[in-house]
């Protein structure tokens, strides 16, 4: 089964990335986690995201473009990055989610991926 691990962090957590005193531990925790995922040979892909203030959101309403500065919705926690992993079942995916540094301060969401869409015969 393929799952997405979605790492949610608060504004304060995002700020850790630039904090001169705490950035070291923040990045060390993440790079160790990413290395362990890599060693387990389950990663299909994944990226980290820049903080939500760098986001721009686009909507088309009544044929008009609406562009606004910032993420799609203001919420306490925002998506900070994701991984796509291939593991036997949900329990294993939860185990990897629990190890994510974000689980200790923010949260980690586990979502199964949609099965591949049927291709039109052509």
């Amino acid at each position: 089964m393929t799952y997405a691990l979605l790492f949610h962090e608060s504004a304060a957590d995002f700020a850790l990335r630039e904090d001169p005193e705490k950035a070291g531990a923040y990045w060390a925790a993440w790079s160790s986690y990413i290395a362990a995922l890599g060693e387990a040979g389950i990663v299909q892909g994944g990226e980290g995201l820049l903080p939500p203030q760098t986001a721009t959101t686009v909507r088309i309403r009544d044929g008009k473009r609406q562009i606004h500065d910032g993420p799609y919705a203001e919420s306490k926690e925002m998506l900070g990055g994701f991984f796509i992993i291939e593991v036997p079942n949900l329990d294993v995916a939860l185990e990897w989610a629990a190890r994510a540094p974000s689980s200790g301060y923010g949260s980690t969401e586990v979502r199964p991926l949609m099965p591949p869409m049927k291709q039109d015969p052509s």
């Binding site: 531990a25 925790a29 362990a36």
Partner: peptide, 21 residues
């Protein structure tokens, strides 16, 4: 140590291991 940290769930244990490393 890095591998251990990547496999750790408990944030307190993680900080401890980061210090050890």
């Amino acid at each position: 140590y890095q591998r251990a940290i990547g496999l750790t769930e408990d944030p307190a244990v993680r900080s401890f291991l980061l210090n050890e490393m």
